[in-house]
Design a binder for these strands. Structure first.
Length: 871
DNA sequence: ACGGGCCGCGCC
DNA sequence: AAAGGGCGCGGCCCGT
């Protein structure tokens, strides 16, 4: 496909979708469509190597080349390809590969059928139909050919593939892949244990430039066609192909519409069919994948070698050295973790699904019944539709950003006819039917709007309407008691709510009746009506939160597409973020509900196998410690050195009156009960100065993200001036942080990049021509990236340290998952305590047994039978 | 019927 | 006018 420069630019208007009508999806890799930044223009960009779903309308002139010409150029490859379609030939070749040609570097690539890469894990899914191996133009791998193409489909299936085991499994034979994870898994489905991993060109490309997500993506095609990437490729002979050509360019056909005319949709036959019926072109297409992967590797290697690698200010070599030392082993480790997977208790999830469904129905009925008094059709409405909710509460309102647009007072919606309502004059229920929703008849004030200017109907917005009333279920009201606050790592939003709660409950007795109600109380005429409105909307909040738990977690985790034969869930762990954090997909195991809010205890479903336990270990205030180190901030470093409650200490440093109280021992910073002591000898700071500590804590979290006084003022509901004053208090003792942040902004401004602890760079190519707002965004990213990215570096080093540990390996402990500042391992229960101590040691000293940071790294670890219990 | 845009929300 | 960083994903609605 074309680079996204074109995608976002002049060509974008020519783009169209093509329908994916292949019965079995052919795939050479996993795929994802992704979203652009919230307000940014770039919308969908291919992230991983895959055939794209966006093509130029004019198929005849892609890049000025006629598809027939593409095919002709492709055919030249055929002369280089040794087609291996029988076992004895395979045996001969493998003998060569593993003896006289053992020292070469090989690029490998598979083509896979019977897998839906958007939904399924490649672990225990997919069938390899062919693969290609290439090691450069000069090696004669037989008959003077330089590229091997192996027909797995008709050349011997599993048997011919297994002939290549000595090649794939030899750790001394260096192999380069584009998205190693996918190929590794599909090959391992045949019982092979792939070894000799040498490089993943996708990771190398990300190390070279992490911002291609919005400017081209990381598909093999996009990368090998990008002159900026391939500029250093060796000059190739006339007509030689380097860049990958996508499947649809070669094999795409315009769909013929019913009337016989050519449609705009483009279809591609199943890959098995292509392999058999378009054999020559298919072989060339497939061979080109490994050829272009090797060229890409050589180009990226040359590029990375030219870059300096500076680790915490010290020259360490080239950025390719960084790749070899960190991301190569990390890439291999991630694939191992994916292979392991996490065991999930399906019976438990099924049980929770039943419970959640019942509770959701109750709450739904309650809301619908109330709303139908104002608008009858709400009985049939979809309470999960934000459009329908917006219509009810805000019908008629004008758009805040674009006053020329406004919601109609009344609107019809097409809904699934789940209630099988039969319309007048009809005999059977239709699949869909229309309902009419109009404004409930009252004006509701709101301060929360969506990015596009419409009033928000999010959970937060609805909570403001409802206030702090209970939804008052008849059956299950007291079945659910939220856990008490045992968690220190609150998000600022949660802390604001915490504040509101304090205010709400501190209001005098006679007012408490009305003060707990939200804005809907007055809107619906106070009294009984107002009260019922608030309760109904509270029920609606319940529906939303239950629904999101069901559809985001309870249901997907039970699906078979993301689990292997062993019933374990194999998510994909990707190095694909701008900052160097991991992301997890299919499913995203990094966003499982946290303990406090998790009414169905979903983390309890993640279990260890019989006889095994999980170890869950996480860093305490990792990002703040990183910030203290990077900025060399005396006050923060001291606070961490002193230990104890960091946020209390921050509050003490911000407010002189607290400082004085601590000095005079009127309050305690923290207190560990000593034997014989029942309660602290003086009040704790976190109780005596709770609101100051909350502010301090919030600033601790917010400042690293670049939050502005304007944003804080909005959250705190105070004036900007007041918010600014509090921010200044925070910075007063932390001038180094202020200075460091200014330096990062300047660095981003002048060099268009910033760096992490280990010396990775993040580019800001948009800096040169950024609007004021965009510039602000980049500046915040510039101060956040070194913090977040360095934390990611530390977490990676810790994982590598753990994976290198011989004792852990011997005891049978394996890494399963990482959630940014947390790792999860599984192993035999009998050695859990020993293993836990080793894990803590590895994480505390993640750099080959050392910690060169100016702060200690605090690690909290637990072992238990499931994830919930181990937190 | 499918995919994109949008919204909303889960996590750190 | 916008005013906290980084993700993935599901539902809805609307276009094709």
């Amino acid at each position: 496909m074309q680079s996204s420069g074109e995608l976002n630019g002049s060509l974008s208007h020519k783009l169209l979708e093509y329908s994916k009508e292949r019965p079995s999806t052919g795939a050479r890799s996993s795929e994802a469509t992704e979203r652009g930044p919230p307000n940014g223009k770039p919308s969908v960009v291919n992230d991983e190597p895959v055939e794209t779903y966006v093509v130029p309308i004019n198929l005849n002139e892609e890049n000025g080349i006629h598809p027939l010409e593409h095919r002709q150029r492709l055919e030249h490859i055929y002369d280089k390809v040794l087609v291996v379609d029988n076992i004895s030939l395979a045996r001969d070749i493998v003998r060569k590969l593993t003896t006289q040609y053992k020292g070469l570097i090989y690029a490998c690539d598979t083509e896979v059928a019977k897998i839906d890469v958007k939904k399924e894990t490649p672990v225990d899914h997919g069938e390899v139909i062919c693969f290609s191996i290439y090691s450069g133009p000069t090696s004669d791998l037989g008959n003077g050919k330089s590229c091997i193409w192996v027909d797995v489909l008709d050349g011997g299936g599993r048997d011919i593939l297994r002939e290549f085991a000595p090649f794939f499994e030899d750790p001394s034979i260096r192999k380069v892949w584009h998205n190693y994870s996918f190929d590794s898994h599909v090959l391992e489905n045949y019982g092979l244990k792939i070894s000799g991993f040498y490089a993943d060109t996708m990771h190398m490309a990300r190390l070279w430039d992490s911002s291609r997500r919005t400017s081209g993506g990381y598909s093999l095609e996009a990368l090998t066609r990008d002159p900026k990437i391939m500029s250093s490729a060796k000059k190739c002979s006339e007509g030689e192909l380097i860049g990958k050509i996508s499947m649809k360019t070669i094999f795409g056909k315009k769909k013929i519409k019913k009337d016989g005319s050519e449609g705009k949709l483009i279809t591609i036959p199943p890959v098995e069919e292509l392999q058999r019926k378009e054999r020559v072109h298919w072989i060339c297409y497939s061979a080109l994948d490994s050829i272009s992967t090797l060229k890409l590797f050589e180009s990226l290697q040359r590029k990375l070698i030219t870059e300096e690698w500076i680790l915490d200010g010290v020259y360490e070599g080239s950025r390719y050295d960084f790749y070899e030392k960190y991301w190569r082993p990390f890439g291999e480790l991630l694939v191992q973790m994916e292979t392991e997977g996490m065991l999930v208790d399906r019976a438990y999830l099924a049980e929770m699904e039943k419970l959640a469904t019942v509770e959701k129905e109750l709450a739904t009925d309650r809301f619908r019944k109330w709303a139908s008094r104002y608008c009858p059709d709400t009985i049939y409405m979809n309470v999960g539709s934000d459009a329908q909710l917006r219509q009810l509460f805000f019908g008629g309102i004008t758009n805040r950003k674009d006053p020329s647009e406004s919601l109609p007072m009344s609107r019809t919606f097409k809904i699934l006819n789940v209630d099988n309502v039969i319309e007048e004059g009809k005999k059977v229920a239709k699949k869909y039917r229309n309902i009419t929703l109009h404004n409930l008849g009252v004006e509701i004030q709101t301060e929360i709007y969506t990015a596009t200017g419409w009033p928000s109907v999010s959970g937060d917005a609805l909570k403001v309407l409802a206030g702090k009333v209970s939804a008052e279920y008849d059956l299950i009201d007291d079945a659910y008691e939220p856990l008490s606050d045992g968690n220190d790592e609150f998000t600022p939003e949660q802390m604001v709510n915490e504040d509101e709660e304090k205010q709400a409950t501190s209001i005098s007795e006679e007012n408490i009746e009305t003060s707990i109600y939200g804005t809907a109380y007055a809107a619906f005429g106070e009294g009984k009506e107002g009260k019922e409105a608030c309760q109904a909307i509270a029920a609606l909040c319940e529906v939303c939160s239950i629904d999101s738990l069901i559809s985001n977690f309870i249901l997907p985790l039970q699906g078979t597409h993301i689990s292997g034969k062993d019933d374990r869930i194999h998510c994909s762990l990707n190095i694909n973020t701008e900052t160097g954090r991991l992301s997890a997909r299919r499913p995203n195991l990094q966003n499982q509900p946290a303990l406090e809010k998790d009414r169905y205890k979903i983390r309890q479903a993640f279990i260890a196998a019989p006889g095994n336990s999980l170890i869950v270990a996480d860093y305490g205030q990792l990002e703040l410690r990183i910030l203290a180190h990077l900025a060399n901030c005396k006050s923060m470093l001291e606070a961490f050195r002193a230990g104890g409650d960091f946020h209390s200490r921050t509050a003490m440093n911000m407010y002189p009156h607290i400082h004085e109280a601590v000095e005079q021992k009127r309050v305690l910073l923290e207190w560990q009960p000593q034997p014989g002591e029942e309660k602290p000898p003086a009040p704790l700071l976190k109780d005596a100065y709770a609101s100051e500590r909350r502010k301090a804590k919030m600033l601790n979290f917010s400042i690293a993200y670049g939050k502005t006084p304007v944003g804080l003022a909005r959250d705190w509901k105070v004036s900007v001036k007041e918010a600014k004053a509090t921010v200044d208090l925070w910075y007063k003792e932390r001038q180094e942080v202020l200075k460091w942040q200014e330096e990062r902004k300047n660095e981003a401004q002048t060099t268009q990049r910033v760096h992490t602890l280990l010396g990775r760079a993040r580019h800001f190519p948009a800096m040169a021509h950024a609007s004021k707002f965009q510039r602000g965004h980049i500046e915040r990213a510039a101060i956040n990236t070194p913090v977040q990215g360095s934390a990611a570096d530390v977490a990676m080093c810790a994982m590598l340290e753990i994976s290198r540990n011989a004792q852990l390996k011997e005891l049978g402990w394996k890494l399963l998952l990482q959630v940014h500042d947390e790792v999860i391992l599984e192993g035999p229960t009998e050695s859990a305590e020993v293993a836990k101590a080793i894990v803590v040691e590895c994480m505390s000293k993640p750099f080959y047994g050392k910690n060169f940071l100016k702060v200690d790294l605090s690690v909290d670890a637990k072992c238990a039978k499931n994830w919930y219990a181990a937190k």
